[in-house]
Computed example of a mutant assay.
Amino acid sequence: MADTLGKDSLVTCPAAVHAQQRPLMQPAFSPARLKEYATVMRDAVVEVTGSWRPGQTIQVEAEAYQIAALAVSKTLVAAPGATQAATVLAKALPDISRGMYARSLVPGEWFAKLPLGVNRRYERQMGIARSQINRVAVHYRNAGIDYEDVLSMVIAMSEKEPDPHQFVYNQALTFLFGGVETTAAALTWTLRLIDQHQDIAARLHSELDEVLDGRLPTHEDIGRLTYTQQVITEALRVFPPAWVGTRKVTKPLQWEEGTIPAGTELLFSPYALHRDPAAFPEPELFDPDRWAPGRVGAAQREGFFAFSAGRRKCIGDEFATNEMTIALAIILTR
């Protein structure tokens, strides 16, 4: 992943750099910014679903990807006159994601050099993404305006970096990649689970009818759609989009089977951890009510890793859940 996102992005940077970057980027996901992003999310869902017709067969994964790509790219780049760049970036992401995934499955550098279609498409779209991000970044710097989007914040941070252009590119691509693939997968699995549990679907429709009464959702509605958010959380437990994660041990770690030396690379699986019956009784059961107010205990909170945990927890966790809430509300009511 570092080959694509660079070694200075929020996801790939070492711990000391992360400790500096994270507080600087956190304001991009403040309550005030999230409220503004909700309109962008709603417009993205309406744009994609507006082409759906009764009786039409769609590929849910592809449509969910388009929703997430539009929402993230237009949140990253919100300046007037830059909407075309956001659209181009959204279209480039699928081939970039497939290329990154293929390279992550095959160790070593030789695979990336093979003249395969997945590699050619990856390189072509990476070039397009770099061109668009660099062009918009120049526009932002020349304008000297804070457009209250993620790119504005990244550009402000980049001025202290040895290579500001590369830094902006790496961070922008990190937000694009991290915010699209996982959210699209989560939305796809959630819709599948709802379809398989019609009793839960009926409760969702009842809540949406009561809260929205046929209108489009706003940011203020997100907090009122409590059962919808329970469904999303439970779907993330059953099918976490990031099914495996890594950590490096920074100091010797004692656990029941011995000592893990500092510097050890660890793998952990949210998919497996979410099926621990000690934290989640009847773990294979899709039960949104386990997240109802008053029922969530310490074991559940500590055993939930859909967005990872600790200092490296996903910075866009609330962004993603808000986007999924808005998407579900529109899809299920229209």
Results as ranks from 00 to 15, higher is better:
residue 185 A to E: 08
residue 32 A to P: 02
residue 51 S to K: 13
residue 36 E to I: 04
residue 133 I to N: 06
residue 270 P to V: 02
residue 278 A to Y: 11
residue 25 M to H: 13
residue 138 V to Q: 14
residue 152 S to W: 01
residue 307 F to I: 12
residue 152 S to G: 00
residue 112 A to R: 11
residue 164 P to A: 08
residue 148 E to L: 10
residue 226 T to A: 15
residue 228 T to A: 07
residue 280 F to R: 01
residue 178 G to D: 15
residue 192 R to I: 14
residue 297 G to A: 03
residue 228 T to Q: 02
residue 113 K to M: 15
residue 191 L to F: 15
residue 275 R to P: 04
residue 114 L to T: 09
residue 309 A to D: 07
residue 201 A to L: 12
residue 257 E to A: 12
residue 313 K to G: 06
residue 308 S to A: 14
residue 117 G to F: 07
residue 102 A to K: 07
residue 206 S to V: 11
residue 207 E to W: 02
residue 89 L to H: 00
residue 179 G to L: 08
residue 137 A to L: 04
residue 245 G to I: 11
residue 130 R to V: 05
residue 172 A to P: 02
residue 273 L to F: 00
residue 245 G to T: 12
residue 100 M to D: 01
residue 287 D to G: 06
residue 111 F to S: 00
residue 61 E to F: 11
residue 240 P to T: 08
residue 39 T to L: 09
residue 56 Q to G: 12
residue 253 L to M: 11
residue 293 P to Q: 10
residue 187 L to V: 09
residue 70 L to Y: 08
residue 173 L to H: 05
residue 150 V to N: 05
residue 275 R to L: 03
residue 123 E to P: 08
residue 259 T to D: 06
residue 19 A to K: 14
residue 155 I to Y: 01
residue 62 A to S: 04
residue 226 T to D: 11
residue 274 H to S: 02
residue 34 L to A: 03
residue 69 A to N: 04
residue 207 E to N: 03
residue 75 T to Q: 03
residue 139 H to E: 15
